[in-house]
């Protein structure tokens, strides 16, 4: 068989194997889905750098001002933070189950699990909102009403601590939790769109790759919180 015929047979075989889902730049459906997943991981790598810059800054400030940061961090609500971590972990479980359902082509289950994930994500935001509200009432918002809490004023005075450095902790706390909340809001909107599309049967396939990619993003938000919770709430709690 000469090369021309071989090439011809290959093309013919390829055409008969080709799934309607396959875009022409990919060899096969498997490579196509791997590419989507790899693309999301690359995006997440940039997100690691994004949050990583903040974490590095926090690490340095904590290293330079351990006592002020410790004292400031004691004003956060450890049990509420713990409940919120649980809520986010549950949302990761339901997200994983949504991905599983989409791999098995169970559309109703996908929509159900995505809705549950969105509900848990929203619950996290609501609890976070109440925490921020309490911070406002306790005068802990930098630039707006920050002052050293009364029960810590004596300690700050005795040890000669700098109130501005306690304020610095709250600047970083609001920046990091705020950025995390923003990611969560984007995630919830994305899941709403996905749930709608799956419900409408919009995807030519079962949407397994799309749901999986959305899931990667969601789990990443969870991982960010897994680090933020101990760093902000727990390290200097007691």
């Amino acid at each position: 068989m000469d090369t021309a015929t071989m090439a011809h047979t290959n093309v013919a075989e390829h055409a008969s194997d080709a799934s309607p889902l396959l875009l022409h730049q990919f060899d096969d459906v498997h490579q196509q889905s791997e590419s989507s997943i790899l693309g999301m991981w690359l995006f997440l790598a940039t997100e690691v750098m994004f949050f990583g810059g903040l974490l590095t800054a926090f690490a340095v400030y904590r290293l330079l001002n351990p006592r002020e940061i410790a004292l400031a961090s004691q004003n956060l609500n450890v049990p509420l933070g713990c409940v919120n971590t649980m809520v986010l972990l549950v949302s990761s479980l339901t997200m994983a189950l949504a991905v599983r359902a989409s791999q098995l082509g169970r559309r109703k289950d996908v929509v159900r699990m995505l809705l549950l994930t969105m509900i848990f994500g929203t619950m996290f935001l609501v609890v976070k909102g109440f925490e921020w509200r309490a911070d406002y009432h306790e005068n802990l918002i930098p630039w707006i009403n920050f002052e050293v809490p009364h029960h810590q004023a004596e300690e700050v005075h005795e040890l000669g601590l700098v109130p501005a450095k306690m304020e610095l902790f709250f600047i970083m706390y609001f920046f990091m939790t705020g950025l995390h909340a923003l990611h969560l809001i984007i995630g919830i909107v994305m899941l709403a769109i996905m749930a709608h599309l799956v419900h409408r049967n919009w995807f030519s396939g079962s949407g397994a790759v799309q749901i999986e990619v959305a899931g990667l993003y969601w789990h990443f938000i969870d991982i960010v919180w897994v680090f933020l919770y101990p760093l902000l709430y727990l390290i200097s709690a007691h």
């Binding site: 790899l38 991981w41 997200m95 899931g215 990667l216 897994v226």
Partner: peptide, 19 residues
């Protein structure tokens, strides 16, 4: 989370490198 929820355990080696 990465190995099981994000399925890194069963994903392509390129994904491992990025991760």
């Amino acid at each position: 989370i990465v190995l099981f929820f994000m399925h890194a355990l069963h994903s392509h080696r390129l994904t491992w490198i990025i991760c």
